[in-house]
Amino acid sequence: MSVSMIITRPDHDDVTHYLHSWSEQIISEAESKNVKVVDLEKNRAIRREVENVLEKIPAQIVIFNGHGSDSSIADHNFEVLIKSGENESLLKSKIVYAISCSSGKILGPKSIDAGAISFTGYDDIFFLARDPIKISRPLEDGLAELFLKHSNVFVISLIKGNSVSDSFEKSKFIMKENFTKLLAGGDSKSSVARYLWWNYKHFVSHGNLNATI
């Protein structure tokens, strides 16, 4: 069976610019594993387009990059893309990951109720510490890497056929490793460890965690 992945990549402010750049590695890895990738980036990361693709393409994995709230994920124009009570049923039979603030709190469980296989994300604010001089080269920002590497590890592990649970644990291990590295550094950068710890604490996974693609 062929595997498909839908990924949204808005790019309308500094944070989404970082997420857009960092998720390039996910796309490369997916394509190298013969996963068909539907890349809804920038102006294509809007509700009409995403709903259309979710309805037409039987993708096994859906990845959302973007801002969020307890009950929704935002699009390229900072408008609602997916919202509980409106269109979460489009996530039925999907393994979903959202790197966005808070959507793991209400939208995640509601998506499972609506038939999603799993929903992994964050149930509170997601922090990103970064070096502003790297804004044009996000992939060279070593500080941001500490906050984003685990996210790619999670999705790439899914693509390799590991279960949601195993991928989640691998991802948490990376977060903890980065956290320990920061604390052990003992310099001023170690003080951002508290924000990495917050992300670690609020990284959540709902649904069937034994599922694989």
């Binding site: 944070v15 801002h67 603030c101 070096d131």
Partner: peptide, 11 residues
């Protein structure tokens, strides 16, 4: 905190 970093909370 280091002087030359930015911390993003959401947007």
């Amino acid at each position: 905190l280091p002087p030359n970093i930015k911390v993003s909370l959401g947007n």
